[in-house]
Design a protein around this nucleic acid. Sequence first.
DNA 1: GCCGTACTACGATGCGTATCGTACGAGCAT
DNA 2: ATGCTCGTACGATACGCATCGTAGTACGGC
Lengths: 125, 125
Amino acid sequence: MTTTTSPRALEHPTRDQIRLEAVLHALADPVRLRIVCDMAREGTELSCSYFDLPVTKSTTTHHFRVLRESGVIQQMYRGTAKLNALRGDDLDALFPGLLDAVLAAAGAQAGREGEGGRGGGDGVS
Amino acid sequence: MTTTTSPRALEHPTRDQIRLEAVLHALADPVRLRIVCDMAREGTELSCSYFDLPVTKSTTTHHFRVLRESGVIQQMYRGTAKLNALRGDDLDALFPGLLDAVLAAAGAQAGREGEGGRGGGDGVS
DNA sequence: GCCGTACTACGATGCGTATCGTACGAGCAT
DNA sequence: ATGCTCGTACGATACGCATCGTAGTACGGC
């Protein structure tokens, strides 16, 4: 039977199932932290293929799964693509200020290490 | 010379050597997160033996080492004891608000789980 | 000096996970 | 339909790490 709705369902934790340790663990990986920073910077839903990551497709899928199952992002299908969005409201309701602090920290660290060769573009507004 | 040269020297990262990923990774472990929360609650230097952790001494040493090498805590010997203190000022200078957000998040989660279902003594004063 | 306490060092072990390659399924274009 | 692109699933692998036990070192008290 060809279901008209999404044939593949994606499991997400509900808001009260989100665990702080899982979120921190998800954000502790450089690849995933970069994904989250990019998503926050764009502020809109992005497909997986938008990101230019230094790993293969398989690993990318793995990282997105970790982010989704930890409750950091939300995923939904749109045709062949899969859109990703930050669960900023859920995270902020559970852990106020945490996501902002991590994003600011990542930006600060990137700026700190990026300075010294680039001129004019600091990347963080 | 005030003979402050301790017989055992402990290596700490300097402030600008602290990496966000390492800090997040250190905080992502339940045992270490609990240690950090306890230290923040007491606000003073605490010996390793102060903590009542559900792991052996060896594992405790390992966790304290991870916390120290990631830059989250500072350790110094005082006689046979080893005192631990949060590097709150360094962390706040590097990643403003991050430690506070994590501590608040941990407290919120502990409170959330403590009220609804009785389970174990996860005492938070 | 001797012993107890506090912590460390080293080795072993089992589990999680980050990584890859390949094979596959779902949708879109021609 | 054929093929192409996007993403998934599964197996394999290697590394990290949380855990333990035991032996050892430093310091203080008796």
